[in-house]
Design a protein around this nucleic acid. Structure first.
Length: 324
DNA sequence: ACCTTATTCTATCGGAT
DNA sequence: ATCCGGTAGAATAAGGT
C-alpha cells in the first residue's frame, strides 16, 4: 500500500502533458458524480466508488528502477524489491568423482572419506538449486507474459506463489514449465479480477492453448483453487481502451452489464462475449461508430456472438431503465 | 476415458444504409 | 460499398457417467 502514496505524489509531475487528463480528474473526486476515487492497485485502475467510472487503467509499474535520473549519485530508489518472485543466485559447484588431487596423485584414505561426504552434500545442494533455476526461468516467463498482457504486479506475484506451490507439490513432472507458468498466470489474473481470455494467454505463451488449459485444470484441482467465473465487467476497461471508446460509453456498458446480470442473462455465456457485446451496445447508444467486426477482432469474440448478445443485453437494459 | 448439451465460431448470404 | 442480421454446421467447453 505504500506504493499508493508514491503514485499519487508522483503523478502530477510525471503525467503532465503525457495524457490528456483534465486537472480536476487527478483530484480525489469523481468528475461525474463527485464520489470518492478509489485507487485500485490490484486492477491497475483508478475508479470512482460511486458510479464506477474508470479514470485510468493499465497504470505504470512503479517498481525500483535501478538507476538514477538526475546527475547526483543518489540512488534512493535502488533497493532490492522484496517479492515472492525472488530466487537464489543459482550458483553451484561441481565436484569430480575421481579420487585424485589437481596433480593426478592419489589421495589418502582420510581425504577420500572427506570428499565422499562433500559429494553427498553437494548433491543435495545442487538438487535444490536446480529447482531454483527452474523457478528462475519460470519467473522470467511470468514477467514476460504479464507485461505483454499488462497485468499488474500483485497479480504476477500471485502467479509466482502459485507456481512455487505447484513445484513443491510435485505437479510439474509430465508437464511443460511453459504450460504451467501460463496456467498460473491465468489463474492469478482471474483471482485478481483482471481476467484475460485463455486465447490471449496462448498468444503470448510459447505453448498452445490446450496444454495450458490442461495445466490450469490440473492446477486448480490439485491446489484446490476456488476461482469464480470471470466477471464480464472486468473486461470492460481493456476493451474500451483498445477500441478507443469514450468514457461515457464504457460507463454505459457497465450499466448494461449490471442490468443483464440482474436478469441472469450472463449464466452460461462467455464473459468476454458479454463484455464485447455490452461495449457494442453502448457505443451504438452513444452514436459512436464501431463495427461488430472491429469489436470482434479486438476482443477475440466473433461478430456473431456480439450481435447475438447485444440485442438481448439492450432489451434487458431498457426494461430495467423503464422501470425507474 | 467417453458422451451429452449448450455455447461459440466459421463461413455464408440477402438486405439495409 | 460497407455494415448488419440471420442461418447451418463444425468446433469447443463443461458437466455427468
Amino acid at each position: 500500500m505504500s506504493q499508493t502514496i508514491v503514485d499519487t505524489a508522483d503523478e502530477g509531475s510525471i503525467r503532465n502533458g503525457e495524457r490528456e487528463i483534465a486537472p480536476e480528474r487527478r483530484g480525489s473526486e469523481c468528475p461525474e458524480c463527485a464520489g470518492s476515487i478509489q485507487h485500485d492497485e490490484e486492477h491497475g485502475e483508478r475508479t470512482c466508488g460511486e458510479c464506477g467510472l474508470v479514470l485510468e487503467a493499465d497504470e505504470i509499474d512503479y517498481g525500483p528502477e535501478w538507476r538514477a535520473f538526475d546527475d547526483t549519485t543518489d540512488r534512493r530508489r535502488v533497493g532490492a524489491p522484496v517479492t515472492p518472485l525472488r530466487h537464489d543466485k543459482g550458483l553451484s559447484t561441481t565436484i569430480g568423482w575421481e579420487n585424485r588431487d589437481a596433480y593426478g596423485n592419489h589421495l589418502s584414505e582420510r581425504k577420500r572419506e572427506q570428499l565422499r561426504r562433500l559429494r553427498t552434500w553437494n548433491e543435495r545442494f545442487t538438487a535444490k538449486s536446480a529447482q531454483e533455476r527452474n523457478l528462475k526461468q519460470a519467473f522470467g516467463e511470468l514477467e514476460r507474459m504479464a507485461s505483454a498482457l499488462g497485468l499488474p504486479k500483485p497479480c504476477r506475484e500471485t502467479a509466482g506463489v502459485l507456481y512455487r506451490r505447484a513445484v513443491e507439490d510435485g505437479l510439474l513432472p509430465g508437464r511443460s514449465i511453459e504450460a504451467m507458468t501460463t496456467a498460473c498466470l491465468y489463474a492469478a489474473a482471474r483471482q485478481h479480477g483482471t481476467p484475460r481470455t485463455l486465447v490471449a494467454f496462448a498468444s503470448v505463451s510459447r505453448v498452445e492453448k490446450l496444454p495450458v488449459q490442461r495445466a490450469y485444470r490440473y492446477l486448480s484441482e490439485e491446489l484446490g483453487l476456488q476461482i469464480e467465473p470471470a466477471d464480464p465487467i472486468h473486461y470492460l476497461p481493456q476493451y474500451a481502451s483498445e477500441l478507443e471508446i469514450s468514457d461515457d460509453a464504457e460507463r454505459l456498458a457497465r450499466e448494461i452489464l449490471e442490468a443483464a446480470m440482474e436478469r441472469d442473462l450472463h449464466s452460461g455465456r462467455s464473459p468476454a462475449g458479454l463484455a464485447a457485446a455490452a461495449i457494442y451496445g453502448a457505443a451504438r447508444l452513444t452514436n459512436e461508430r464501431v463495427t461488430q467486426e472491429t469489436i470482434g477482432d479486438e476482443t477475440g469474440v466473433s461478430s456473431v456472438t456480439v450481435r447475438n448478445r447485444y440485442q438481448e443485453l439492450l432489451a434487458a437494459y431498457e426494461e430495467t431503465r423503464d422501470r425507474r
